[in-house]
Structure formats: C-alpha cells, structure tokens
Design a protein around this nucleic acid. Structure first.
Lengths: 231, 231
DNA sequence: TAGATTGTTAATCGATTAACAATC
DNA sequence: TAGATTGTTAATCGATTAACAATC
C-alpha cells in the first residue's frame, strides 16, 4: 500500500527532490541526509522524511539516503521512468519559448509537437519541431497516445483547446491561459498563470506599514458605499 | 486593523478575483455574488467571502458585491493602485517571451527594462525595450526605485543576480530559475519553475492503478538495497 | 415583510512540526 | 557500543468548510 491519496503538496515537492538528487549524482555524491536535502530545497528535514515515507522506506538509519537509489524511486513514483511526450498548443511568444526552454532544460519530458491555428505560423520551425495545424491535434494525440498537454493560447481560445485535448485522451493539462478551465473530474489541470504569480508578488513588495497606510486612506474603512445601485 | 498576517493562500487568490471583476466590469455587470465569483474562479463561495472579509466588509447583504467598488478595493489591497514597474534579468527565450507577454497581457505591471550579460544581446530590442548590460542593473534599480524583479537567467547565474537585485533594493523576486534562492528574511521570492510544474503534473497523467503497478514491480516493496555503499 | 446573501463564528479537516523509538 | 539519522506516531498549527445570525 505505498500510494493511497498522496496530497498535492507532497507531489509538488517530489520534482524538487529529484532535481537536487540529479545535481548530487552529477557531483558524484552518493549519500545524502534529510538535513542536507532540507538545506538545498528549503523544506524541513522532517517534512522531507515524511514525504518520502509515504512511498516506502528508502533510507538507511544512521546514514541517510543513497542518492542513486532514491532518485530511481522518485523517478518511478512520479512516472518519469518511461519517456513522457507532451504537446504544446499555441505557438506565440510563450508557446515558442516553452518549446525551446523545455527541450534544453527538462531531461524527463519531451515536447514532441506544437500546434497553432494561425496559417502564417503553420509549417514554421521551432528548433527541430515544425508547427502543425490545430486541426491535426486530435489525431496526433490519439495516435501517439499523448497524456499531457500544455496550453499556451490566448484566454479566449483556451477552453476550446481544453475540450479538444480532453476528448482526444489527454489526462493532464498545464494551463498558461488566464482562465479557469472546465474539465471532467478525472482530468488534472495545473494553472501556471504568470500574471497572477506576478500580481500576488506585488502584495509583498511594499512594506507592511506602507500597505496599511494605503488601505487607511479610504476614510470609512471597509464599508460599502451607501449609494450602491441594486438591480 | 484590516490587515495583520494574511496567509499566502489568500494573497494568491486576490489576483484571480481581480481578473474576474475586470471581466465583469467590461461586460457592464455591476453586481456579483460570492456564488457567482465561485463559479468563475473555482474557489468556494465561503472561501471567497472569508478572503474578502479579512480586509473589510465590501459587500451588501442580500445583494452581493458591487464589481467596480470591489475591484477598486482589491487593487488597493494588492498594491496595484500605483504604477508598478519591474525589470527582467535574462533575455533568453524565456525572458524575451515574458517581456512581450507581459506587455500585452498584464494591465497592472510594466516591464520597463531587460538586462543580460551576453554582449551579443545588449542593445537589441524586445518590442520597445532595449536590452541593457547586466552591469547597469544596480544603478537602474536604485534610481528608478524598482521593488520587483523577474529572474529568467540560467540556474547557475540566478543566485548571483538575486544578490545584486536585493543589494540594490528589490523587495520581491519572481524566480524562473530552477534553484532555491538564498535571500534575507524580508525579501519575498515566488518560484515559477516550469519544469517542476510539468513534472508534478506527470504524476497525475497515468491512472492510479497504472501508478501502483509501476511501483509494485520493484519486488522488495520500499526496502533500501542491502548492498548500500556508505560514505 | 419575505427572500437573499453577506460577514463571522464554530467545527472540521489536513498538513506541518515536534518528538522519539527503531536501527544502521 | 556510541553516534547518527531514519521512519513513524503524537501534538500543533493553519486553512477550509459548515452553519447561521445579521441585515440589505
């Protein structure tokens, strides 16, 4: 019973551990303690041990974790042990950058095709990948058994694209469009809305006092306007 | 006392509300209930009401929230009521895309300068912005009172860039590099590591049963290898 | 007044932290 | 054996959900 409803927070930390292990292995370090992993990841050692323990006992008491072995296990847990192919829909600035970026930076996932609606883009190359017509998307997903799609189209087109990829068999979507996608319950969507990331950061960019001052300027602190027009 | 230690989760939802309100206002809708906001955002109505109540009583019982008024309040709470300027460091694929993307998609934040180390990039244009030399970064941050920086350099250069911007007065960093940045306690860092986003999504792209099978293949379920080499 | 929806308090749920026995 | 660090259970903390009184 290694699995059983692992929380999202735990799953999000696994790739961090993986990245650190890859670095350690590259540096020929073959033993690491939860304390050292904590140092590199910023998560507490207790949390790391607990996360790993959900899936099994991978360490050696008194010593730590064998980096190669732990890496292998995490790779299996996430599902990166077999070649993962993904497609990007939208060949604008963001889609193009993601395609190039992924090819160079992500050793575990391959972007194998890029789709766009715009006839002027179709046929053009992004690195080694040729941009295909959106109309070919369902057939491509089907015949290549693609399970993960990256949506990088404008907000207005995102739901339509989501419907297409889900219908064609995709199980997980990384969505860069600033909309809440409506999908069946068994489909997973991660939102990577850069605008929202950035805006929520603004909140922290001014000091506490500065923020309080800003809010206090409003004279009737927190009251709805009297002249609220209802209908 | 409207403020006082608002949790990160709440702050991350505020820009979502803002985006929805902007859309509603554009559609000339001037009243919205927490139920409707729930529908558009995917968060529960209770959660939305609670989030907003941390900052004041912005609604009208029996009616809902005035969209224009609520938007104005959220804009103030986040700190988007004055012009926010940010800089991007790294003019590679990602930095370039972020620059263009932000100009077109983010009405509240302006990318005002882009920096890179590579002499071949310096002086080139991204839209209306000319790429500057990294050496000019501290002076620029200082004299323009920049409080937010976006790091889009390779992993190896990210910490160095972080040190520079923090030293120059930046208070919040959006970090796209796959490293844990070490910064003083009062500096906020949001990580937007696309590789990690994508990898954690893979976990959900195969069915539960499939994942369990994958893990079970390992015969001694979860035991460390006997031949663990220590040191 | 009746109907609706907020704002707020209480109950629940889940995740993190602390502590420590197990064991290498 | 002594020292170290895991794996796991218990305690704490925080966030979400439920319920409902306030009130438009």
């Amino acid at each position: 019973m290694p699995d059983r409803n692992i929380s999202k927070s735990v799953v999000k930390r696994l790739p961090v551990y993986l990245r650190i292990l890859d670095q350690l292995i590259q540096r020929k370090i073959d033993l690491v303690s939860s304390k050292e992993l904590s140092n590199e990841s910023g998560f507490t050692a207790e949390q790391i041990r607990k996360d790993l323990a959900y899936f099994g006992a991978f360490g050696t008491r008194g010593a730590g974790y064998n980096t190669v072995y732990l890496r292998e296990r995490i790779v299996k847990i996430i599902g990166l042990d077999k070649r993962i192919e993904t497609v990007i829909i939208g060949a604008g600035n963001l889609g193009t950058a993601l395609t190039r970026y992924n090819s160079s930076k992500n050793p575990y996932v391959d972007v194998v095709a890029v789709f766009d609606q715009d006839p002027r883009l179709i046929g053009k190359q992004i690195g080694e990948i040729e941009i295909s017509a959106l109309s070919e998307l369902p057939e491509y997903i089907n015949s290549n058994n693609i399970k993960v799609a990256i949506i990088a189209v404008p907000a207005g087109a995102a739901q339509e694209v989501a419907d297409i990829v889900v219908e064609a068999g995709v199980k997980a979507i990384l969505n860069f469009a600033p909309v809440k996608l409506r999908v069946p319950d068994d489909i997973h969507v991660h939102n990577a809305d850069l605008t929202i990331e950035l805006q929520s950061l603004i909140y922290y960019s001014s000091g506490e006092e500065e923020r309080l001052n800003r809010l206090k300027k409003e004279p009737d602190k927190g009251k709805s306007p009297k002249t609220l027009s209802l209908e």
